[in-house]
Design a protein around this nucleic acid. Structure first.
Length: 827
RNA sequence: GCCGAAGUGGCGGAAUUGGCAGACGCAGCAGACUCAAAAUCUGCCGUAUGCAAAUACGUGCCGGUUCGAGUCCGGCCUUCGGCACCA
């Protein structure tokens, strides 16, 4: 055999795999299915190392599961709508579609050069009409189920992107895509009613046994369920009631004011009722609204407000409390109004200090009397005894909360209520390169869905791009002008497109039936393949994509289109690929290009290194020397197998194991221990790094025989073939080349059964055990495996080191761990 | 502030159920091969003392449980990630 030349053999096998379509999958109810999925990429033009890691993990699993006998589906596609294509159009005058498709072609080439086992017949691209037709269909389904609606609201706006954003897409007050500061705008926008599913999205996190705990915790926090009480206060002057929401009903006797958000509808009512205050209030509202989102919602910023001179009555004790318009109450959480209890809430405390408002202590630690004059901050411990609270005095928080809520419900001025931090999903975008929202506006008939038989609403190709201008769709006359589907009169189309997260929230279902032109997917097919058995991607989607996909799946389940509640049974969140301790980026100049690495060492080396260098969930620091080491290892495998080529070919699969020498038996033992270890590491732990290190140990053991011309040929064959099989998921080309050299052109290593460990071969006749005295290692001895406790103790007592060190001391007891150690405890 | 994860040689990391700390790899050192180098093969490789045998110390810090702790418990420190005026 000639030397290992990855460039040559990788090209050869990639061509062959493509031509023979070996990775094509079909439904087969007789076989257990396995759905491996890596998050599909945005077609930016080139793969980066994060992709390489993502796809390598998926490919190892897909190949391994195939060898284990599963019917594996392993698809790939492109999340192809989005801003960068449009930016390219503005900057370079290329059509977004042309830019996107040519990027896809390049990335597909790079994916092929990685040797990934995708079934390309299932490829989807979200920007193709045959895909977005069904994204639009999905929108219509949501609309018909009352889950898509348009409303005017204060929404997140990114000026750079020229569009609105969902809450999930604002990170620390900045746009998730461009890091520009997000501002609030009062706009009429489309929403998906994800809040209707808040409870089930939270509850079903319990079903996700195969998800990392931290991702579930993040979603739990994001949904933010809280239980509390909604209280209605009479406002006699206005002849209205004002509702507040609280999670601390026990503090209700300590209310000294009520705080409204500036957007609260009662603010305007008050202005009308109190003309003398109106100017001051309106000026304050204006000032607050002019602040950026960061300023407004930072817990650091000072709490300010304007007293309205209007009072409400606390139904518990009849106290009057002034209504204030403030900058620290959120309009879109709870009722947009909050009861002010300075003694037990730090924000209310600071507000009350600033404006000299009353403080009533209603809770104090056991055995302590809190005095308002001596307090420097609110008492916020959730532990204490009530006071100044009428009939509830002397009760603990839990008892009082229940009693107060019961009283409120009994007397009709309050109701127990559950609240969520989660907001509805804002899904419209003022951009061109996305799926058009299939809605038509008619002056007479109002908002109308585009009839299903007219889908897709096609994105027009000839549009005008100018930086900073409104969406090109809105300027495109032939797109905008249409006829009302109901009355046939001239009407106008919706010019917003959908958030690309909608496109990506159902693609894993489309893979199961990607060419269906009658439905988004066939139920039999989707229910055979899905849910995804193993989903692999970055932690950055912990909330965004993963929450949206769960939501969409649940709606489809409720519609009867799928029969499962959760889309991804198991989730693996890979760490980032770093260079010199930080994220690879152009500005830092530390980017390592996959294409260059593959060009220099081959895809097998790149894959092997990336799987070996760190456990999948942890960040991985790229090391050029490490890559060279992986290349060295593959060469080592190549050489030892080449050297034994004749022996391997001439030997049979069956041979007399009893004829093996002790050294050969040891090699065979290591082989079977390795099979066991590699299988468990891949199947149960996703510890690919340790799987590879045990394969390396096997190769090291094998090298002990490199100069032994008389080594048993049957054993050499057994070791070599199993070694290739175990290495095949990691280094698919190189193992395939060696396999075809040894076994023949028609046989593929990837179609082999995964090796099975011969337990009998793993047994050692002798083991080295540790002798400890008082827990410290003092000697090591060889003993026969499986001997009794008594025999082990005897062996320890007879050991000269033990005798020497226990001389004249009293042996209190001896602890034996079979085949591992004896600990002699002396005094 | 709240929630979560992590901290082990010069470096990446291993130790799966409380039982030999440092597997495997990288870097380094030495030997073999070679006229020489590269490549390859082999060996050494936590720190301190020591010629060695060996001994002591050693998994962020302090304490505890245990015959025995990287692993369990209590209290901290540092780094990273998420959330953050959600009443």
């Amino acid at each position: 055999m000639e030397k290992y030349m990855p460039q040559k053999i990788e090209k050869k096998w990639q061509k062959k795999w493509l031509e023979s379509n070996v990775y094509k999958t079909e439904m087969d109810p007789k076989k257990p299915k396995y759905y491996t999925l890596e998050m599909f990429p945005y077609p930016s033009g080139n793969l980066h190392m994060g992709h390489v890691r993502n796809y390598s993990i998926g490919d190892v699993l897909a190949r391994y599961k195939t060898m284990e006998g599963f019917n594996v589906i392993h698809p790939m596609g492109f999340d192809a709508f989005g801003m960068p294509a449009e930016n390219a159009a503005i900057k370079h005058g290329v059509k977004p579609a042309d830019w996107t498709y040519s990027n896809m072609d390049n990335m597909k080439r790079q994916q092929r050069e990685m040797g990934l086992s995708y079934d390309w017949d299932r490829e989807v691209a979200t920007c193709r009409p045959d895909y977005y037709k069904w994204t639009q269909w999905l929108f219509e389904l949501f609309y018909k189920r009352g889950l898509a609606y348009k409303k005017k609201a204060y929404v997140n706006w990114c000026d750079t992107c020229g569009t609105v954003l969902a809450n999930e897409q604002v990170i620390d007050g900045l746009c998730w895509r461009c890091d520009n500061e997000v501002v609030k705008k009062d706009l009429s926008q489309w929403f998906f009613k994800i809040t209707d599913y808040a409870d089930v999205l939270l509850k079903d996190l319990d079903l996700l046994k195969g998800w990392p705990e931290r991702v579930k915790i993040m979603q739990d926090n994001w949904i933010g369920r809280s239980e509390g009480l909604e209280l209605n206060f009479e406002v006699p002057e206005l002849n209205e009631t004002l509702s507040v929401y609280t999670t601390r009903p026990d503090t209700a006797y300590g209310i000294t004011f009520v705080a409204l958000a500036v957007e609260h509808p009662m603010v305007e009512t008050i202005c009308k009722a109190k003309p003398e205050k109106a100017d001051e209030i309106r000026a304050f509202v204006k000032k607050v609204q002019s602040q950026s989102d960061i300023e407004r919602t930072s817990s650091e910023s000072e709490k300010e407000g304007v007293g309205t001179g209007v009072y409400m009555i606390n139904p518990f004790n009849g106290n009057k409390a002034e209504i204030w318009v403030t900058n620290y109450v959120l309009a879109d959480y709870g009722t947009g109004a909050v009861m002010g209890v300075p003694s037990e809430d730090q924000r209310d405390w600071m507000f009350a200090q600033k404006y000299n408002l009353d403080v009533i202590v209603t809770l104090q630690p056991k055995g302590v009397e809190l005095k308002v004059e001596e307090m420097t901050e609110a008492y916020t411990d959730k532990d204490g005894i009530l006071c100044n609270s009428g009939e509830f005095d002397g009760q603990d928080i839990k008892t009082a909360s229940k009693g107060i809520m019961d009283k409120a419900e009994r007397e009709g001025f309050g109701k127990r209520r559950v609240n969520y931090r989660l907001r509805d999903w804002l899904i419209s975008r003022q951009r061109y390169w996305g799926a058009p929202i299939p809605v038509i506006y008619c002056d007479d008939c109002g908002e109308q869905l585009v009839p299903e038989d007219q889908l897709p609403v096609m994105l027009p190709e000839n549009v005008n791009f100018e930086a900073g201008s409104v969406s090109p769709l809105a300027q495109c006359e032939e797109f905008v002008n249409c006829t009302c589907p109901k009355c046939g009169k001239p009407a106008k189309r919706e010019t917003d497109t959908m958030d690309t997260f909608i496109c990506s929230s159902w693609y894993y279902l489309r893979y199961t039936d990607p060419k269906n032109d009658k439905k988004p997917f066939d139920s039999d097919k989707v229910n055979y393949w899905a849910p995804v058995d193993q989903y692999i991607g970055g932690i950055e989607h912990a909330i965004l994509h993963l929450l949206y996909s769960r939501f969409v799946t649940k709606v489809l389940r409720d519609e009867g289109l799928v029969d499962f509640a959760e889309p991804f049974s198991n989730l693996l969140t890979q760490g980032m690929v770093l260079k010199d301790g930080s994220k690879m980026s152009k500005s830092k100049g530390n980017v390592v290009s996959p294409e260059e690495i593959i060009g220099e060492y081959g895809a097998d080396t790149a894959r092997l290194f990336i799987m070996f260098a760190a456990p999948v969930e942890r960040d991985l620091d790229w090391s050029d020397e490490g890559v060279a080491g992986s290349f060295r290892f593959l060469n080592r495998v190549w050489r030892i197998i080449s050297q034994f080529e004749d022996k391997i070919k001439s030997a049979g699969d069956e041979y007399d194991k009893k004829a093996l020498t002790d050294d050969e038996k040891e090699l065979r033992r290591v082989l079977h221990v390795t099979i066991k270890k590699v299988t468990e590491d891949i199947r149960d732990r996703f510890m690919f790094n340790t799987a590879i290190s045990s394969i390396m140990e096997l190769v090291n053991e094998f090298y002990k025989f490199q100069n032994d011309e008389n080594v048993n040929a049957g054993l050499v064959r057994e070791v070599s073939l199993n070694l290739l099989k175990m290495l095949a998921p990691f280094a698919p080309h190189m193992t395939e080349e060696l396999w075809s050299e040894l076994i023949g052109e028609d046989s593929s290593v990837h179609a082999q059964k995964w090796p099975v460990c011969d337990e009998a071969a793993t047994v050692k006749s002798e083991v080295e055990i540790v002798l400890q005295i008082n827990g410290k290692v003092r000697d090591r001895i060889m003993i026969a495996t499986g001997i009794s406790r008594e025999e082990m103790e005897e062996a320890a007592k007879n050991n000269s080191r033990v005798q020497e060190l226990t001389e004249g001391k009293n042996i209190v007891k001896m602890i034996c761990v079979p085949d591992k150690l004896v600990n002699v405890v002396v005094k």
